[in-house]
Amino acid sequence: MLDFINFYVVPGIVTGSIYAFAAIGITLVFSIMRHAHLAHGDMATMGAYIALAASTMLGLPVYFALLLAIPLTAALAVGTDKLFYEHLRKKPKILTTMSTLGTALMLRSIVQVVWGVGTTSYAKGITRPNDWFGLKIKTNELITLLALAVVVLGLAAFLNRTRWGKAMRAMSDNRDLALLCGIDNARVITLTWLIVGGLCAISGFFLGINTEIKSMMGWNIILPAFAGAILGGIGRIEGALVGGLMIGLVEELSVLFIPTEYKAVSAFAILLLVLLVRPRGLFNGKII
């Protein structure tokens, strides 16, 4: 039983929290800007590499490097919005989705040209897991879970309590009505991109610290992250959290039943199933 938890449940929850970070960002873009953000994964890769550069070049401890990567990736997200998406606002949203695909390819290419296609990691060597009465959990894994709790609680407080958070929710519910109420749509969009960029950096960083850093790492989590966001219900932060965790768990547990190569397909199967049976997701989100 303990082995089952150590080998399947703990990795599942850790993978799931990485998906949850990404799914929260995806759900924000999907509900507020109303398009799929296909560059989410590659932006996470970018965040992970910025943190890597900060820690190797400036000699910062990795978690400080993350604190540097968050604002930089957030600025990158706002920059891509201004450059590529702003002029598409009045056009059908599908064009913006297409444009995010272009951004994804550009970001990936920058990573591959600057840092190459090899795999690397933040710290050399193998870290041994700590033993908590038989439960084997690494320090990095604990920090990942803690960070997830902080981000989710912080974001929930921001969205429910503050003026700008309420403006974001208003825009997600009804853009025109929000505009009529005097909410500056353009500034809310910029704010959302800041948050989404930061979340990208966080998800990329924790993906890198718990597995390895490589140029395709972000693209590889895009499907599970979307599956998590849609499973939870688009527009629901708590949904993205639960959805991401569930997808992570299912992926890790799926190897008990199907060949390991198909681990990545299990998230996709859930995505199809949710779209077929309950497209609003567990927490009754929106259908964009």
Binding site: F30, H35, A36, L38, K93, I94, T97, M98, L101, I222, L223, F226, I230, A264, V265, F268, L271, L272, L275, L276, P279, I287, I288
Partner: peptide, 20 residues
Amino acid sequence: ICLRFRGDYLAIVTIGVAEA
């Protein structure tokens, strides 16, 4: 499955199909 919704869902799912 996908064409009941707006286009973005089809985009995500077709990426998944190609990967699978």
